[in-house]
Design a protein around this nucleic acid. Structure first.
Lengths: 255, 255
DNA sequence: GGCGCGGTCGTACGGCGTACGGCCTCGTTG
DNA sequence: CAACGAGGCCGTACGCCGTACGACCGCGCC
């Protein structure tokens, strides 16, 4: 924990890193390392083994250099993670989507979900202030552009995007937890519940929590597991879009 | 980092802790410590100084005992945090609310927001599987009970609750980040932006990201800060409830 | 009266992020 | 062409963290 907490005392240093303001070295043979190389292996490590496996020693090792060499290019781990995040945003597609706003917004939601599925560490890393890098800016600009013309105020458009992206992140986090748990315990979600259920029943007085038991059982049977993250994502997304459609329609009617 | 990752190999041990299955000691003078005392000071520390300040040494210190004494009552830090979470859920109100489902659900959302505001560390701790303690079960049962009768299937009711709680958590997290940043930098949100803006403009080519700039400026002026977490919460909540109302109405009509 | 056991906790280990200072290499300069 | 200095590299060390281990100690029980 704790790694992303630091508030990065010097804004200039962090921003310069994000925006890659750096005069190229005059040396003939360029240096062995670069911010890009570091970020690339760091993302690979985090993708494959999670944020906990991402240590500065590990990054140095993967690059074949000493641990402290990494610090020549990156002020600290928090800043490295920030650049990783901005880089990941950079790989998102930004197609021009045909169709109405709902189609476009739904597409944005699915693209963001896919991003989190490819880089689950982002769900645990983005705990501080947004990163303010070029790729995040481009993403924000693109996503706003898809819905600026739906008849809401600028402030409302911003809130609509925040709402949708928040839902995606919630759902992605839930899905990611299921995956994590399977990797760590070697059990599927269903197996995990089967192993815990007998113990739980030991403590539960029969008849306590009647609604929770009934609904929990129903959900478990429906999804073939205790929790269905895909269903939660789809159901929630459609509800959110329905809710947005209500204001959009209201606004169109009163014009 | 890393603290909540461990999958707690032994379910019986964790569950026994959560449900406080423990024969009272036969000793005349009870022991100096107890799970409850430990949990209480741990929550106080986390409330006051955040999850990062919560270390096992710190807990022992606050209790006036050696660090390792804490381990007599709690298998490890991850389990301690789990009990803290379940305990926090236990303090939530569970009133019988008059009115329609929307009133009840809105109340649930606000109560959950208040919980996260009182215990912001929960937003960073709940990264693993739900805790399965008695208070979480009671909370789940109560919240489901408020909406079981709205004419949806059990599975849908579960998804509705997940959606609303997910929105609350997203909004609470965003609000908490603003507060954190103010505490760490001693700047308000507005001041922080003012100190970063000149640097950012150095890198930005004029005319790049036109939509983002316009919307960002509008949002900033509206909220008197770069980001308005309260507005985002309210706007999103109404959209989500509107969206739920759409399915509820559909279902009522087709019956 | 002796024993055992539960509570207490000092010490130590392996891991983390990273400050510091030395070294080595190479383009630049007199 | 030789001396210099800056920039890249990195070994060592420090102060944190969670926690394994084993010793001590005082009480209830046979």
């Amino acid at each position: 924990m704790a790694s992303e907490r630091k508030a990065t005392a010097d804004p200039a240093r962090s921003l310069a890193l994000l925006w890659r303001t750096r005069e190229p070295t005059s040396r003939s043979a360029g240096p062995a390392l670069s911010v890009d190389r570091i970020v690339r292996v760091a993302i690979d490590i985090a993708d494959a083994e999670g944020l906990d496996a991402l240590t500065m020693r590990r990054v140095g090792e993967a690059l074949g250099v000493g641990t402290m060499s990494v610090y020549t290019y990156v002020p600290g781990k928090a800043e490295l993670v920030a650049v990783m995040i901005d880089t990941a945003y950079g790989e998102m597609p930004r197609p021009v989507v045909e169709g109405d706003w709902r189609t476009r917004l739904e597409r944005i939601a699915r693209d963001n979900l896919a991003l989190y599925q490819r880089h689950p560490w982002m769900l645990r890393a983005e705990t501080t202030r947004p990163v303010l890098g070029p790729h995040l800016m481009a993403k924000y600009d693109y996503e706003l552009g898809a819905i600026v013309d739906i008849g809401l105020t600028d402030v409302e458009v911003d809130a609509v995007l925040t709402l949708v992206l928040g839902h995606v992140k919630s759902a992605a986090r839930a899905a990611s937890e299921v995956v994590d748990l399977e990797r760590e315990t070697g059990m599927t979600d269903g197996q995990w519940w089967q192993s815990h259920a007998p113990w739980l029943e030991t403590f539960l007085k029969p008849g306590a929590y009647p609604t929770a038991s009934r609904v929990g059982t129903a959900a478990g049977q429906q999804h073939g597991a205790a929790y269905g993250p895909e269903y939660a994502f789809e159901f929630g997304l459609q509800r959110v879009l329905d809710g947005i459609a209500v204001v959009v329609a209201e606004r169109a009617a009163s014009r």
